[in-house]
C-alpha cells in the first residue's frame, strides 16, 4: 500500500519491494528510527505515536499525489508507525522510485518533510526515569 498508518513494525525490505518497477533506475528511501535522546528525566526508552487517523490518511494521500506529479515519482511509499515504539525501531519510511536519481532524492525529501510538517501525528517520549514529554 502506498500510504499506511500502522501499529505493526515497518520494514525497509518491504518498502524496496513496493518501489520496484520497470525502468525505475533511481530509488531513494528514508527511514526514521527512535533515538535514545538524553534529557533531565533520563534517556528516551520509547516513543508513543498517535494520529488523527482520517485526516492523517487524507493528508498522506495528498502528499503522495503531489510527489508523483511534481517529481515524476512512479512508485511511492509513505508509511508511519503508531503506538509504542522502542529505541531503534523504525517510525517512518518515505520512499520514491523514479527514472533517475535526482528526482528520486528530491521526491523522498519532499515526502518526509511534508509528512513532518503537515500530517496530524504526534509523539510522546517515554523516558527511563518516570518523565514524559511531548
Amino acid at each position: 500500500m502506498t500510504v499506511r498508518l500502522t501499529d505493526r513494525p515497518l520494514s525497509v525490505a518491504d518498502a524496496m519491494r513496493a518501489l520496484e518497477g520497470r525502468g525505475l533506475g533511481g530509488v531513494a528511501v528514508f527511514a526514521g528510527r527512535v533515538r535514545p535522546d538524553p534529557g533531565p528525566g533520563g534517556p528516551v526508552s520509547a516513543l508513543h505515536y498517535d494520529a488523527h487517523r482520517a485526516p492523517a490518511l487524507r493528508r498522506l494521500r495528498a502528499i503522495e499525489r503531489t510527489a508523483r506529479r511534481r517529481f515524476d515519482a512512479r512508485r511511492v511509499v509513505l508509511w508511519h508507525r503508531v503506538g509504542r515504539l522502542r529505541v531503534g525501531e523504525i517510525s517512518v519510511i518515505a520512499g520514491a522510485a523514479c527514472p533517475h536519481r535526482a528526482s528520486a532524492f528530491a521526491a523522498a525529501r519532499y515526502l518526509i518533510e511534508e509528512l513532518k510538517a503537515t500530517v496530524p501525528i504526534w509523539k510522546t517520549e517515554r523516558r527511563r526515569g518516570s518523565g514524559r514529554r511531548a
Binding site: K116, A117, V119, A134
Partner: peptide
Amino acid sequence: FAVHPPYGGG
C-alpha cells in the same frame, strides 16, 4: 471537534 497541537511525526 479535534485539538491539533503542532505536529510531531517522523
